[in-house]
């Protein structure tokens, strides 16, 4: 009996000093999370502006298309809209599902492909028109001053240059180089109050039929206007060895890689 008791006591003591796990380790957080969030806001804004440029280029091609082919051309790219031209130089993109006017475009009498022409476009809920001007052959300037886009007050300017020999029918079908910068500031009082500035450091490369940028980089910095905290980051687009689009965020001198994909609905 004594031996049994000694064994039992030893067993209990040994078990007593064994620690036991009560909670699993936390999921490893993304160390570049802040940098990625900042970069995403800048990237989103650039794509919003390019989306407007895409509509303008499309409308220009649409105007030049023969009447018999107009419907097919529209349906090939923007099936979800009806194109209306109620007054001279004024065009509407009306959503087919609820007949709501989503884009409002004011043209001048010239094609947007001719130097000096200036068109204006406004998306529903945006406060101000975005100006698109053809500054030289196959070069455009997209400018938004005192604008409002998706919860942000926007001041931005993009320079878009087509690298094809002939300007394409649409942004999607061409090759482009983009430079520029922008300032975003929170527009709604109920959101976090942030001021974010971005600058395209290395020219962004858009390849035909690839929705995301395949090269280039953007410097972003952000400041929390309530706490005065500020951060900066750099995002670089590139294609890896397997021709997969990737994104590299450098934040606090550390680099993190992400898949580079884009929700194209932002552009529609």
């Amino acid at each position: 009996m004594k031996n049994k008791q000694i064994i039992l006591v030893s067993l209990i003591l040994v078990l007593g000093f064994q620690s036991c796990e009560i909670r699993e380790p936390e999921t490893k957080p993304d160390f570049a999370k802040t940098g990625k969030q900042m970069f995403d806001r800048a990237d989103e804004n650039i794509f919003n502006l390019i989306g407007l440029f895409d509509k303008v280029l499309f409308l220009d091609t649409y105007q030049k298309t023969a009447d018999s082919l107009k419907y097919k051309f529209k349906d090939d790219y923007f099936q979800q809209y009806l194109i209306k031209n109620p007054v001279v130089n004024k065009w509407y993109f009306i959503r087919t599902t609820d007949l709501d006017t989503i884009y409002n475009i004011i043209t001048d009498s010239k094609s947007i492909r001719s130097v000096g022409s200036e068109w204006m476009i406004k998306k529903k809920y945006d406060d101000n028109f975005c100006t698109i001007q053809c500054v030289s052959d196959k070069k455009w300037q997209v400018k938004m001053l005192q604008g409002y886009m998706s919860f942000w007050n926007v001041e931005a300017e993009l320079n878009i240059e087509c690298t094809d020999s002939v300007a394409p029918a649409l942004y999607q079908t061409g090759n482009f180089k983009i430079t520029g910068d922008g300032i975003l500031e929170s527009a709604e009082s109920y959101t976090q109050q942030v001021r974010l500035t971005y600058q395209i450091k290395d020219t962004l490369i858009h390849r035909q039929s690839v929705w995301v940028f395949t090269g280039g980089s953007i410097d972003v910095s952000a400041k929390d206007l309530e706490t005065n905290q500020s951060e900066s980051a750099n995002g670089r687009y590139y294609m890896n060895r397997n021709d997969k689009n990737e994104l590299e965020i450098t934040y606090h001198n550390r680099t993190q890689t992400y898949d580079n994909w884009y929700d194209t609905s932002y552009m529609w």
Binding site: P29, K33, T34, Q37, W152, V194, A222, E231, H252
Partner: peptide, 17 residues
Amino acid sequence: PNLIDFNAKDYYKGARY
């Protein structure tokens, strides 16, 4: 929707015993 998390964690907790 404008959220930028300025205090994102650069560490994580291991298993708790």
